[in-house]
Design a protein around this nucleic acid. Structure first.
Lengths: 138, 138
DNA sequence: TTTTTAATTGCAATTTTTTTGCGTTTGTGA
DNA sequence: TCACAAACGCAAAAAAATTGCAATTAAAAA
């Protein structure tokens, strides 16, 4: 059982109260959160600049990742290697469901086979958009 | 051979010089462009509000689509049904290569099979990120 | 061709999101 | 305990996106 503090130090970051708080929020909520949502969920008030810089740093360390949900602003969620997943997002109400599809490794090797300009893939982003059952009814 | 004007009218839009110009740019460049890139490539100057609203309207009509490349702003490209594709983006220099992978239909049905909240998928976004051959050397 | 009408546009202002510089504070390893 | 790089807060600004309204215009109707 690895604590958030350990996780941070392992990646060469300082385990400050702010960083721990941000990671705790992301870990607890389990869905991609916007900057505002993160900020509002923090038990301690953090400066917006600090939040932006922390999220950038944690993204570089691949402790969290940035998710694009089709809005004009970014969302972030925890990276859990044993829980690789994507999302399906409702175009009406924005509801998010995790999606576990296999085959992404095969996809990557197939992409590299065809690519002329790339010989490696570091990551990928895959999101589905639809209308959820609730919104279909209305 | 369908003209841009026809395409617009078919979708219930007016074929104004501005819209035609924006679509011409997207059609010619063939890669996802940012608002600024579109604006700078236009033969006529268009107000930024007009550009934003036009892109929104064309996206709704599915004539173009919004692409997220991991930057803090959106990109747009033409939708060509006979040329469904995704992208691989260099994390260093931003270079973009088109990626044609099959299997996205199977993916969508597999997603729906597992989903509890959704019974339909309208679209999906799939981008790969890596370091291109040129940047690997440096 | 002229008229009518709704769609589209430009402008000015504002909001939202993200970034930057800099001086101060604070974890952490020595 | 100390030194130092990492992290922080603050203020300001830059970048991206949105809004309301009046004027214009493409396209259908007359």
């Amino acid at each position: 059982m690895e604590t958030i503090e350990t996780l941070l130090r392992k990646n060469g970051s300082k385990a400050t109260p702010g960083r721990v708080a941000i990671l705790s929020v992301l870990q607890k909520k389990c869905i991609p959160l916007s900057i505002n949502e993160i900020s509002a969920s923090l038990p301690v008030k953090l400066n917006q600049t600090t939040i932006y810089r922390t999220l950038e740093s944690l993204t570089d360390s691949e402790i969290i990742r940035r998710v694009e949900l089709g809005h004009a602003h970014a969302h972030y969620e925890m990276v859990e290697k044993q829980n690789h997943h994507h999302h399906i997002i409702c175009k009406e109400c924005g509801k998010i469901e995790d999606v576990r599809i296999c085959g992404t490794e095969e996809m990557e090797s197939s992409v590299l086979k065809k690519s002329k300009l790339f010989h490696n893939i570091k990551s990928h982003a895959l999101e589905f958009f639809g209308v959820c059952n609730g919104c279909v009814k209305n």
